[in-house]
Protein backbone atom coordinates (compact mmCIF):
# COMPACT_ATOMS: atom_id res chain seq x y z
CA UNK A 1 0.00 0.00 0.00
CA UNK A 2 2.89 2.40 0.63
CA UNK A 3 3.58 2.48 -3.09
CA UNK A 4 0.07 3.71 -3.71
CA UNK A 5 0.45 6.58 -1.27
CA UNK A 6 3.55 8.07 -2.80
CA UNK A 7 2.79 7.63 -6.52
CA UNK A 8 0.16 9.64 -8.33
CA UNK A 9 -3.04 7.72 -8.83
CA UNK A 10 -5.66 8.10 -11.55
CA UNK A 11 -9.04 7.11 -10.17
CA UNK A 12 -11.70 5.81 -12.53
CA UNK A 13 -15.34 5.17 -11.74
CA UNK A 14 -16.02 1.41 -11.68
CA UNK A 15 -19.63 0.94 -10.52
CA UNK A 16 -22.07 1.67 -7.73
CA UNK A 17 -21.62 0.06 -4.32
CA UNK A 18 -24.90 -1.79 -4.75
CA UNK A 19 -23.68 -3.42 -7.99
CA UNK A 20 -21.20 -5.55 -6.08
CA UNK A 21 -22.65 -8.53 -4.20
CA UNK A 22 -21.91 -8.55 -0.49
CA UNK A 23 -18.95 -10.85 0.34
CA UNK A 24 -18.28 -11.37 -3.34
CA UNK A 25 -16.75 -9.88 -6.43
CA UNK A 26 -17.42 -8.49 -9.90
CA UNK A 27 -15.27 -7.94 -12.95
CA UNK A 28 -14.64 -4.34 -14.01
CA UNK A 29 -13.56 -3.37 -17.50
CA UNK A 30 -10.91 -0.65 -17.71
CA UNK A 31 -9.69 0.06 -21.25
CA UNK A 32 -8.51 -3.38 -22.35
CA UNK A 33 -7.95 -4.63 -18.83
CA UNK A 34 -10.09 -6.76 -16.57
CA UNK A 35 -10.01 -5.94 -12.88
CA UNK A 36 -11.64 -8.02 -10.14
CA UNK A 37 -13.32 -5.93 -7.43
CA UNK A 38 -14.29 -7.40 -4.05
CA UNK A 39 -16.44 -6.12 -1.21
CA UNK A 40 -16.14 -7.27 2.44
CA UNK A 41 -19.08 -5.45 4.10
CA UNK A 42 -18.53 -7.17 7.46
CA UNK A 43 -15.20 -5.33 7.78
CA UNK A 44 -16.14 -2.50 5.44
CA UNK A 45 -13.24 -3.18 3.10
CA UNK A 46 -12.78 -3.13 -0.67
CA UNK A 47 -10.06 -4.77 -2.73
CA UNK A 48 -9.16 -4.89 -6.41
CA UNK A 49 -6.78 -7.22 -8.24
CA UNK A 50 -6.17 -8.38 -11.78
CA UNK A 51 -8.98 -10.69 -12.95
CA UNK A 52 -6.56 -13.14 -14.55
CA UNK A 53 -5.64 -16.17 -12.43
CA UNK A 54 -1.90 -16.68 -13.09
CA UNK A 55 -2.13 -20.44 -12.51
CA UNK A 56 -3.90 -21.39 -15.75
CA UNK A 57 -4.36 -17.92 -17.21
CA UNK A 58 -8.12 -17.85 -16.75
CA UNK A 59 -10.19 -14.63 -16.47
CA UNK A 60 -11.98 -15.84 -13.41
CA UNK A 61 -10.91 -14.39 -10.07
CA UNK A 62 -13.93 -12.06 -9.82
CA UNK A 63 -16.09 -15.20 -9.74
CA UNK A 64 -14.02 -16.77 -6.97
CA UNK A 65 -15.03 -17.23 -3.38
CA UNK A 66 -13.72 -14.61 -0.96
CA UNK A 67 -12.78 -15.21 2.65
CA UNK A 68 -9.94 -14.93 5.11
CA UNK A 69 -6.93 -16.97 6.09
CA UNK A 70 -5.68 -16.16 9.55
CA UNK A 71 -7.50 -12.83 9.28
CA UNK A 72 -6.00 -11.90 5.91
CA UNK A 73 -8.59 -11.31 3.18
CA UNK A 74 -8.22 -13.60 0.17
CA UNK A 75 -9.93 -14.97 -2.92
CA UNK A 76 -9.91 -18.57 -4.23
CA UNK A 77 -9.95 -19.09 -8.01
CA UNK A 78 -13.02 -21.07 -9.12
CA UNK A 79 -10.92 -23.33 -11.37
CA UNK A 80 -8.42 -25.00 -9.08
CA UNK A 81 -9.06 -23.21 -5.79
CA UNK A 82 -5.67 -21.49 -5.64
CA UNK A 83 -5.97 -18.75 -3.00
CA UNK A 84 -4.44 -15.29 -3.27
CA UNK A 85 -4.02 -12.59 -0.64
CA UNK A 86 -6.05 -9.50 -1.48
CA UNK A 87 -3.66 -7.34 0.52
CA UNK A 88 -0.50 -7.93 -1.47
CA UNK A 89 -1.65 -10.39 -4.15
CA UNK A 90 0.72 -13.23 -3.19
CA UNK A 91 -0.39 -16.80 -3.71
CA UNK A 92 -1.32 -18.44 -0.40
CA UNK A 93 -1.68 -22.00 -1.71
CA UNK A 94 1.84 -22.47 -2.99
CA UNK A 95 5.02 -20.47 -2.88
CA UNK A 96 5.88 -20.79 -6.53
CA UNK A 97 2.77 -19.25 -8.13
CA UNK A 98 3.07 -15.64 -9.37
CA UNK A 99 1.49 -12.87 -7.32
CA UNK A 100 -1.50 -10.79 -8.46
CA UNK A 101 -1.38 -7.09 -9.21
CA UNK A 102 -3.47 -5.16 -6.73
CA UNK A 103 -5.16 -1.76 -7.10
CA UNK A 104 -6.31 0.81 -4.55
CA UNK A 105 -10.07 1.33 -4.18
CA UNK A 106 -12.01 4.27 -2.75
CA UNK A 107 -15.70 4.95 -2.16
CA UNK A 108 -17.35 8.34 -2.57
CA UNK A 109 -21.12 8.83 -2.43
CA UNK A 110 -21.87 5.13 -2.95
CA UNK A 111 -19.66 5.17 -6.01
CA UNK A 112 -16.67 2.82 -6.28
CA UNK A 113 -13.42 4.11 -7.80
CA UNK A 114 -10.38 2.03 -8.69
CA UNK A 115 -6.95 3.66 -8.81
CA UNK A 116 -4.46 3.15 -11.57
CA UNK A 117 -1.00 4.02 -10.37
CA UNK A 118 0.74 6.34 -12.79
CA UNK A 119 3.72 5.06 -14.65
CA UNK A 120 2.42 1.50 -14.65
CA UNK A 121 1.02 1.20 -18.14
CA UNK A 122 -1.37 -1.42 -19.39
CA UNK A 123 1.40 -3.69 -20.59
CA UNK A 124 3.12 -4.15 -17.24
CA UNK A 125 -0.14 -4.35 -15.37
CA UNK A 126 -1.22 -7.34 -17.40
CA UNK A 127 2.17 -9.05 -17.49
Amino acid sequence: MSLHNTATINWFFACKVEDVPANGGVCVKYLDEQIALFHFPRRNEWYATQNLCPHRQQMALSRGMTGTQGGEPKVACPFHKKSFSLVDGRCLSDDTECALNTYPVKIEDDRVYIGIVNGRDTETVMA
Binding site: N23, F40, R42, R43, G64, M65, T66, G67, T68, Q69, G71, P73, K74, A76, K81, S83
Partner: peptide, 10 residues
Protein backbone atom coordinates in the same frame (compact mmCIF):
# COMPACT_ATOMS: atom_id res chain seq x y z
CA UNK B 1 -15.26 -16.23 13.16
CA UNK B 2 -13.40 -14.40 10.39
CA UNK B 3 -14.93 -14.10 6.93
CA UNK B 4 -15.22 -17.76 5.97
CA UNK B 5 -13.43 -19.39 3.05
CA UNK B 6 -13.91 -21.69 0.08
CA UNK B 7 -14.28 -24.68 2.42
CA UNK B 8 -16.84 -23.53 4.99
CA UNK B 9 -18.89 -21.30 2.69
CA UNK B 10 -20.14 -24.11 0.42
Amino acid sequence: HGEGCEICKP
